[in-house]
Structures are given as structure tokens and as C-alpha cells.
Computed example of a mutant assay.
Amino acid sequence: MQALAKAGATPIAVPPGVDGSCTRQVLEQVDGLFLPGGVDPHPRWFGEEVHPKTTIDEELDALELQAITCAVSMGMPILGVCRGSQILNVALGGSLIQHLEPGTINHYRPDLPLSTEVHEVRLADDSRLAKLSGTQLLRVNSLHHQAISRPAPALRVVAQSEDGLAEAVEALDPARWMIGVQYHPEELLNHEAHSSLFDDFVSACSEFASKRRGTA
């Protein structure tokens, strides 16, 4: 919420437990959807049984799946971080790796401050993220034990870690502002490559609001 406020937004938190009609009413009053980090999406949404390491919050799933469906239908900008990126992919028809064992990179580093840059990701040169970051190689933090497996049909992978995991997705349709990142840019705001993501999201939300009011 601090990162969004710093970029000029007025964040409004919506708690789990509200019904679908209430979620729609809230989204009709705001200009963008931000999906934060958290526990794991239920694997039933992509046709798998629960892994022993998977931690689930079904009320949170219900809220975010409803919110994503509404936001997509409205053409609203969407930004997802960590779990937010995963639930966005699941909501749009993709799947997840339920648990990552440490390999070339240990992606789950709760022993380190989130301001620590753990590894590098390579950005697709034609991606919005590359344009915002001004680079194709980006140093990021890491605190996830799940990752995107099959990208949703409406999304494309635009960043990968050195071991080949998807680290960011964007909408296939370049006219849609929809980005999910597996890392936590809100903890790296001292780097312009990360703060620019929030600035661009808020700018897209402002443009969406103007179009909705017919003043663009």
C-alpha cells in the first residue's frame, strides 16, 4: 500500500469474505486492481491435488478470482505481485508449480531481508517491463516456493530467472495493462527499475479512469 501511495494512488483494501456483488461494487468505484503476495492458490483451480507444502486460503481465492474476473471484463489495469501473479495466471486458465525444491537458485529466501537482490532475471526486449526498467537484466529479491507452470492463454512470459522459471507475465494484447511479477518490487523502490512499475500502473489507472468518465 505504501508503494502504491508513493506512486500517487489512493489504495483501498478489500478483505476476504465479501460476496461477489460487493466485489463488483467496489471495483466500479476504483481505477485499478492490485493483487498482493500471500499464501498459495488452491490447486483445484488448475486440476491438481493439494501438495503437502501448499498453504491455502479459500476465502482469499474466492475474493481475488471474483475481482480478476470483474477487472478483466471492465478492461481495468491489473498488477499482481508474487501470489498476485500466480492467482492472475490461474484465474485466466494457467497452472502453477506447487512446490520448488532448491536448485541452481533457491527461490525461497525468508532468511534474507526482502530488500536483498537474490538473483537476476532476463526481460524480453519487447516487453513493457523492459521498457520501464530500461534494461533486459534485472536484479530481484525472491520469496516464493511456487511458480507459474503453464501460462494462461491471455498471458505471455516476459521474464525468466537463470534456471528458466517464469518471473513475470504480461497481457498478450499490448493494448491491455496487465502485469504479474514473481518478485517483490515494492521492497526495492530505491531502484528506478522497480519504482517505475508502480508509477506506470498508477498512470494506466488514471488513463482508465479518464476513459471511463469519457474525458480522455
Rank of each mutant, 00 (worst) to 15 (best):
residue 78 I to V: 11
residue 181 V to G: 13
residue 190 N to K: 11
residue 3 A to R: 03
residue 190 N to C: 07
residue 75 G to R: 04
residue 82 C to R: 05
residue 183 Y to Q: 04
residue 137 L to R: 15
residue 92 L to F: 08
residue 48 E to K: 12
residue 151 P to R: 03
residue 87 I to Y: 06
residue 6 K to F: 00
residue 164 G to Q: 09
residue 168 A to S: 11
residue 109 R to I: 01
residue 102 P to H: 12
residue 141 N to T: 09
residue 19 D to G: 15
residue 106 N to Q: 12
residue 35 L to W: 01
residue 44 R to V: 14
residue 187 E to L: 11
residue 5 A to G: 05
residue 162 E to D: 15
residue 102 P to R: 12
residue 184 H to R: 02
residue 75 G to C: 01
residue 15 P to C: 10
residue 15 P to K: 11
residue 18 V to K: 06
residue 9 A to I: 09
residue 148 I to A: 09
residue 115 S to E: 11
residue 23 T to H: 11
residue 35 L to Q: 08
residue 210 S to P: 02
residue 101 E to A: 13
residue 78 I to M: 05
residue 28 E to I: 05
residue 175 A to F: 07
residue 150 R to G: 03
residue 180 G to I: 13
residue 125 D to L: 09
residue 137 L to E: 14
residue 52 P to I: 03
residue 169 V to D: 09
residue 16 P to W: 07
residue 215 T to H: 08
residue 108 Y to D: 13
residue 76 M to K: 10
residue 139 R to C: 07
residue 18 V to S: 00
residue 199 D to K: 13
residue 8 G to W: 04
residue 112 L to S: 05
residue 154 A to D: 15
residue 190 N to D: 15
residue 78 I to L: 07
residue 166 A to W: 03
residue 80 G to V: 06
residue 55 T to C: 11
residue 124 A to W: 00
residue 190 N to H: 14
residue 107 H to I: 08
residue 22 C to G: 10
residue 211 K to H: 08
residue 176 R to V: 14
residue 213 R to W: 10
residue 27 L to H: 02
residue 47 G to M: 00
residue 135 T to Q: 13
residue 103 G to C: 03
